[in-house]
Write a protein that binds this DNA or RNA. Structure first.
Length: 572
RNA sequence: GGUCCUGUGGUGCAGUUUGGAGUGCACGCCGGCCUGUCAAGCCGGAGGUCGCGGGUUCAAAUCCCGUCAGGACCGCCA
């Protein structure tokens, strides 16, 4: 139907007769016998010169035959890739007429997102999504290439799997052949990729669709894509190398520049310095430990296991209103309160200054390297909570837009094996129950401080986004059984939940380790988008609805009956 | 489960603080003029359930309550 793409035409094509297809992007009429039409396809826009264009409206789909010619002197458009040429159209066929679009195709107006989603096919024509889909495709391709270079082969795993109680809430699919039973949609191919290792696949990867029925966020959709990988006879450093290579290739494919080394930081250091296990290291405002400043303070709020603070340079002009607002937010986040202090020439201006001794104030100022005009924000609590709250405050006040400061990758390593103790007194696995403890801490499994055990688990972080995580897996049955015992999962329960994995390990399991990272998040950061919906062709809203197709929808009674289901009346 | 923000012609906004006639701006749309524009220009026109429901008031886009939709975040996401 066409000989060329609109955006490809250059002065070298002058004199050629071409046939183009595309949408009417914009129309400029100059009386009855001269009109300019910008014709648009995925490659770009080129100017057509036609003899009258009254019947060629916005977004009509045209097939145009004409001659490429150089534009008359002084009429070239340097802002356009094809701006040196134009098409002298001799034949114009309307392939499809179009109603005026529900919102402008151009990029100048920010359109309500529901409207964009309802007419996603129109939104996809806009430069932003055209560009983002292309970036996404290039990232996919680069990642595949990089994994295959390293000897990984792509293996597909099922979408209908067994539900497991651990982890996120499953999406389930009722079984018609066995009413009352359900498949789950995979939260990740975790078990299958480990079985692949037992199966001698050696190096597996897949860009896999994963589904989790949890609340949506700017960086979370029900369904998302992961680069999922697993390798045999490797350790943590090997995996970090594989993934660094793949992610670097993706970044290079988009930015043209290969990122440098990815620094490593222990989980503990990340929490201490940034109050987060996914620290955004593009900016300072690091957490400062102040516990030692108030060892025997009279101020009751600071009589806690931990006091930490951040310094907001030049923040002393923050209004009382904003400070109150920030305090309220901290309380909503679970803090007992937020102590603020404005560093002024005459001393600390703060509602709590009168409770602090001169010495405490002086040590505080020197510890925080406070200067006049700064704002100090302090939280006192247990270590973990104090770090967490201040980490949220730090991001709230200082986090730059995604497009600023370049790409700062970071490996966070040495995660704790357990992140706490549940109400029943059992430890809660920080990653998943197949995670190998750190070799140096393995003795602590037997009667040591469980919460002090580090694991061979690691996260990849990019500009404060958790891209993904992985671990060295337990491949010895005895260690796995020991972990299950500690988690309070008895042999029967373990057999019921993960029996097939444990069984598989009886037949010769290689040492193996793996990783998975979110493609949507990687693409979003590389595309300079704050929200992964902007890099997904057909995303869902925060409530999990699709305004385009109307999903989710009820199904009719016959359909339910066939599946052996009955729907409860809505709760009052 | 919770906190905060948003909702006004097709689109993007202003108007809401301090109640007084659906008032305004830009784009788009329709018609006319226009032979070198490129976010073309000029003239004219059409287009409104101020998300929805209730309340207060002589009077509500504006104040109050509820509700729906969307967004950001906390919880949640092994």
């Amino acid at each position: 139907m066409r000989t060329d793409r609109c955006g490809d035409l250059r002065p070298g094509d002058v004199g050629r007769q071409v046939t183009l297809c595309g949408w009417v992007d914009r129309r400029r009429e100059h009386g009855e016998h001269l009109a300019f039409i910008d014709l648009r396809d995925r490659s770009g826009v080129v100017q057509l010169v036609v003899d009258g264009a009254h019947d060629l409206r916005s977004e009509y789909v045209l097939q145009v035959t004409g001659t490429v010619r150089e534009r008359p002197a002084d009429t070239a458009n340097e802002g356009l890739a094809t701006g040196a040429v134009e098409i002298d159209a001799s034949e114009v066929t309307i392939l499809a007429v179009a109603e005026p679009p529900p919102f402008p195709i151009d990029e100048r107006t920010e359109v309500d997102e529901v409207l964009r989603l309802r007419h996603r096919y129109v939104d996809l024509r806009r430069p932003r999504l055209q560009r983002n889909l292309e970036i996404r495709a290039r990232v996919n391709s680069a990642v595949r290439g990089a994994m295959e270079e390293q000897g990984f082969i792509e293996v597909e795993t099922p979408m209908l799997v067994a539900s497991t109680p651990e982890g996120a809430r499953d999406f389930v699919v009722p079984s018609r052949k066995e009413p009352g039973s359900f498949y789950a949609l995979p939260q990740s191919p975790q078990i299958f990729k480990q079985l692949c290792m037992v199966g001698g696949v050696d190096r597996y990867y897949q860009i896999a669709r994963c589904l989790r029925d949890e609340d949506l966020r700017a960086d979370r959709q029900f369904e998302f894509m992961q680069l999922d990988a697993e390798a045999s006879f490797v350790g943590q450093d090997d995996v970090l190398g594989f993934i660094t290579h793949a992610v670097s290739a993706a970044a290079e494919a988009i930015t043209g520049e290969r990122p440098g080394e990815f620094p490593q930081m222990s989980w503990h250091e990340a929490m201490e310095r940034f109050g987060s296990d996914k620290p955004d290291i593009r900016f300072g405002m690091e957490l400062v430990d102040l516990t030692h400043v108030f060892p025997e303070t009279d101020f009751r709020a600071f009589q806690t296991p931990c006091v930490k603070g951040i310094r907001v340079p030049g923040g002393a002009d923050m209004s009382r209103n904003r400070l109150d607002d920030l305090t309220d937010r901290c309380k909503a986040w679970g803090a007992k309160g937020l102590v603020w202090m404005k560093v002024e020439a005459g001393g600390l201006n703060s509602p709590v200054a009168k409770f602090l001794s001169d010495e405490e104030q002086a040590t505080l100022r020197s510890t925080m390297e406070a200067e006049v005009g700064d704002l100090l924000l302090l939280v006192a609590d247990e270590w973990r909570k104090a770090c967490h709250i201040l980490g949220l405050v730090r991001n709230d006040l200082g986090r730059p837009p995604v497009t600023e400061g370049g790409l700062h990758f970071l490996w966070v390593v040495d995660f704790p094996l357990f992140e706490g103790i549940d109400d029943a007194g059992n430890p809660i696995p920080a990653h998943h129950p197949f995670t190998m403890p750190h070799e140096d801490d393995i003795d602590l499994l037997d009667g040591g401080d469980l919460l002090a055990i580090r694991s061979q688990a690691y996260d990849l972080v990019l500009n404060g986004w958790e891209l993904g995580s992985g671990s060295v897996r337990i491949h010895r049955r005895q260690v796995q059984e020991r972990i299950f015992a500690i988690l309070g999962i008895g042999p029967d329960e373990a057999q019921a939940k993960f029996g097939f994995l444990l069984d598989a390990f009886r037949y010769g399991a290689p040492p193996h380790a793996g990783f998975a990272f979110g493609m949507d998040r990687l693409v979003a950061v590389l595309a300079g988008e704050e929200n992964i919906r902007e890099v997904i062709a057909y995303p869902k809203t925060q409530s999990g609805a699709d305004p385009l197709t109307g999903s989710p929808t009820p199904i009719d009674d016959q359909h339910l009956k066939e599946l052996g289901l009955r729907v409860l009346p809505p709760r009052q």
